[in-house]
């Protein structure tokens, strides 16, 4: 057992749950996409676009991307906390990661909203 000294309100439980909830959403989406790819005919662009161009898949794909970026935030933050020991470096890496992921979320929305 380890003795924790109480220092604040955050013990990582929320992140632990979010990591698993987003993983579950992405796993379900991956299975849906695998089925859609298996059923895809040899139609090139039109067949590929048809997978994502309906309301259900737009919703699911956007949900996938939001889950992905949130999941990535927790995972990459853990990597920085494990390997980037100087506080300043860690802070810079975390801010850069968060900024990139927020930007990617906007980018993903743009891709899907145009369909």
């Amino acid at each position: 057992m380890i003795n924790r000294i109480v220092v604040g309100a955050g013990y990582g439980l929320k992140d632990w749950i979010v990591q698993r909830a987003t993983a579950l959403i992405m796993a379900v989406y991956t299975l849906i996409l695998l089925v859609a790819l298996g059923a895809m005919g040899p139609g090139g662009y039109e067949a590929w676009r048809a997978i994502f161009a309906n309301g259900f898949m737009q919703f699911m794909t956007f949900l996938f991307f939001v889950s992905l970026f949130w999941h990535v935030w927790i995972g990459v933050r853990d990597i920085w906390m494990d390997y980037a020991k100087p506080d300043g470096l860690r802070l810079v890496l975390m801010i850069a990661t968060a900024a990139a992921l927020v930007g990617y979320a906007g980018w993903a929305a743009k891709i899907l909203w145009r369909l």
Partner: peptide, 21 residues
């Protein structure tokens, strides 16, 4: 795998964008 996929996200998003544009 998680770290590499994260680092290459811009390339993958770009490819996804191009494939649907």
């Amino acid at each position: 795998s998680g770290a590499v996929l994260f680092l290459l996200l811009p390339c993958l998003l770009w490819l996804f964008q191009q494939s649907l544009a």
